[in-house]
Design a protein around this nucleic acid. Structure first.
Lengths: 396, 396
DNA sequence: CTACTTTTTCCACTCAGAGGACAAAGACGG
DNA sequence: CCGTCTTTGTCCTCTGAGTGGAAAAAGTAG
């Protein structure tokens, strides 16, 4: 099928496309209620969108008491590809133009194998989704990578955990391979956009989205827009000092948050506890699997293992301390906790909450929800689809 | 004289007013070069502005080789009042529409004497400026207060160091008294706006402005706009934990940055050092003045007093640690250090720089200047004038 | 004084958008 | 089944913002 290459010609059309994306099919009349344009103007713009085939007419709308209206919806053949490259796994999903996930696959892979190997994998996963009949091609793709990105160019810059990716033209290369527009961003920013689009942050303009996975990062949303900082490294909170003279960190300093609590740190501490026989539960799991990960700690904690619970609580406290500082500074309307270790669930959340509510001033915390993300592993790919759709649904 | 009550009628006029404010008198042709409007449209809008008397014709412009053009400038009779209410003193200044300070007076006063007493003082200072012939009246006033403000309403909310101000309708009250529009903001935000308008931050879109005075606060500028947070308390970094289990703080926690370094903390530590005879220099000053303030520490340090230098270095380290965290999180393009204790100058700056450059990641610090504010005590009042002018020079 | 520039004004023309009138299509009561 | 009412969609005219060219005004350079 011929891909849609059209873009909205003006801000009105862009507005309409975003309304249809976020609100699903709508009649002209319903659209008119939302955009403050005269009926004539609206009709003109809708007609032009119909001509570009970005939107299509779609049957009759429910009656509101008078003449029934015809629904307008985004072209149901539009397909976006959402790719979330994590430190240790890759998520790829296909969505329609309303950003609903039509198919989603996950594959373990170490990002340190380098961009070439990773892209091979991504392309084969995309091909698999295509083969299953979900898409005939892609109209756009969003990519998340676990490190800072120079956003306008879509190029990773000095990513600590992605050797070999520095300066690699991710956007350019994937755009070539996929034959469609591509946007690249930090995976944490995409998670924030996902939760904003379809998750807990739908109604909040200013919020933080803390992702605790192999590393720790934080998406910052200001006035509904992701804030990326001067060089694209905003939200890189993993290397804030959490413990004076604490554990050494890969970055060269000591006591970084990431060195004390993250998927990697948790695995390390669990291994130590198992070997020192402080936790029979963990020791048993080590015996079985030959290795320990954050998942084991979560399972052990769920089974009531005191050492594991302590590890989680301790980490939650550290993280909570750092978040408390950020809350004082940024005064967000919401804090979302997400990422791989959310399996640790409410033990973690409780520890974080305790620290934040204790350390930040009442004015900042008075009405501040701190919640777990509600999309889990789909937040990233939804955010990725959102990223490219925001781009494509803006005037050229 | 009749005050100007006109406001720009549309975005074009607002744009022109701001260009004239920031760039001084300009010919129509020069304005045309900057605004991307057709000559005819520009002429129409300028004529309308002339009708409202917001701008006036002002002689001939310098020749650019052809017909000489007439200059347009903001009405030279326009006057803004900038008020900066600090914890222990009040600054009041009069500016013209280009935000140049025409007169500036400072008066010690404790903000804890409450809004009524403080406003009496402010009004008498404003009257004095008027009496000296600098203004016949004010077209607008900006007010900075040392605590969080619900910005749209111009009302302090739960200000820790301003008992009695909570909920006091500052904007409303002063607007009544002065008979002109008033805007209220946190003093730190105004300092940031001042440095942005006329100081070191003129060309930077995203920066932090750390003010170390009686307390510690931080102005946050995102995309050229001050970010105030969900409840107006953004930038309240004085109560971030800097020292685990450190000094008790008035807020009820321990180890807050403000409890370890600020005008008040410095005075406390200096007094202790003097009494314990660790510093002859400080002891002598205590003898002379009967009390010690941050100014004494600065003087002693300048005279080579080792204890004072240590106090400054120690405080700078603490502050630098906190700033390092904020830099990692926010990735600003510039950090400005200002406030009362900038007398401590380069000793302080060096300590802060050391910590930030050591603790934050190279990507965030690589191109990050950390500098002292360049406006000193005028930053606040200039920012106040800027605040109200931004308001008045926007479409009604 | 002449040739050339630049600035400013004037004017005709275009185009986006508003809003009213009217036609189309269904709901609903009799 | 029919007339009335409501909602939706289309058409058409009118307005006002804005553009761009031409010419006048007012200089500079030689």
């Amino acid at each position: 099928m011929r891909r849609m290459t059209a873009r909205p010609a003006n801000a009105h059309q862009a507005r309409l496309l975003k309304l249809l994306r976020d609100g699903g099919p709508n009649s002209r009349a319903q659209l008119g209620d939302q955009v403050d344009l005269s009926r004539s103007k609206l009709a003109v713009e809708v007609d032009r969108l119909l001509e570009t085939e970005l939107v299509v007419a779609d049957g009759l709308a429910a009656s509101r008491g008078g003449r029934r209206s015809h629904n307008i919806r985004l072209n149901p053949h539009l397909r976006f590809l959402g790719v979330d490259i994590g430190a240790t796994s890759i998520d790829v999903a296909v969505t329609n133009a309303e950003l609903e996930i039509l198919g989603h696959i996950n594959q373990p892979m170490d990002v340190r194998e380098g961009p070439v190997a990773v892209f091979e994998q991504v392309l084969s996963m995309a091909a698999k989704l295509k083969a299953s009949g979900l898409a005939e091609g892609f109209d756009g793709a969003g990519i998340g990578v676990p490190g800072p990105v120079r956003f306008p160019e879509g190029v990773p810059v000095a990513p600590p955990i992605m050797p070999g990716w520095d300066g690699f033209p991710v956007r350019e290369a994937l755009s070539q391979e996929l034959g469609c527009p591509v946007m690249v961003d930090n995976d944490v920013n995409l998670m924030a956009m996902g939760e904003q689009h379809a998750g807990v942050a739908r109604t909040v303009a200013d919020f933080l989205c803390v992702k605790i996975g192999t590393g720790i990062g934080c998406g910052i949303v200001v006035g509904g827009e992701v804030y990326r900082g001067t060089t694209g490294s905003a939200g890189d909170i993993g290397h804030i000092q959490a413990v004076p003279d604490g554990h050494p960190c890969a970055c060269g300093n000591r006591g970084c948050l990431e060195a004390h609590f993250s998927g990697a740190a948790l695995a390390r501490d669990a291994l130590e506890a198992a070997q020192q026989n402080r936790s029979p539960e963990l020791a048993a799991r080590l015996e079985n699997h030959g290795t320990l990960t954050a998942v084991d700690v979560a399972a052990a904690a769920a089974a009531g293992d005191a050492t594991s619970l302590d590890l989680i609580r301790e980490g939650g406290n550290r993280t909570g301390q750092v978040i408390a500082g950020l809350v004082s500074f940024f005064n967000p309307g919401l804090v979302v906790i997400g990422g791989g270790v959310t399996g640790l669930g409410h033990t973690l959340l409780a520890a974080i909450r305790t620290q934040v509510y204790r350390q930040s001033l009442p004015l900042a915390t008075g009405n501040l929800p701190i919640v777990l993300g509600e999309l889990g592993p789909t937040a990233g790919v939804i955010g990725a689809a959102r990223l490219i759709s925001d781009h494509l649904f803006s005037p050229a």
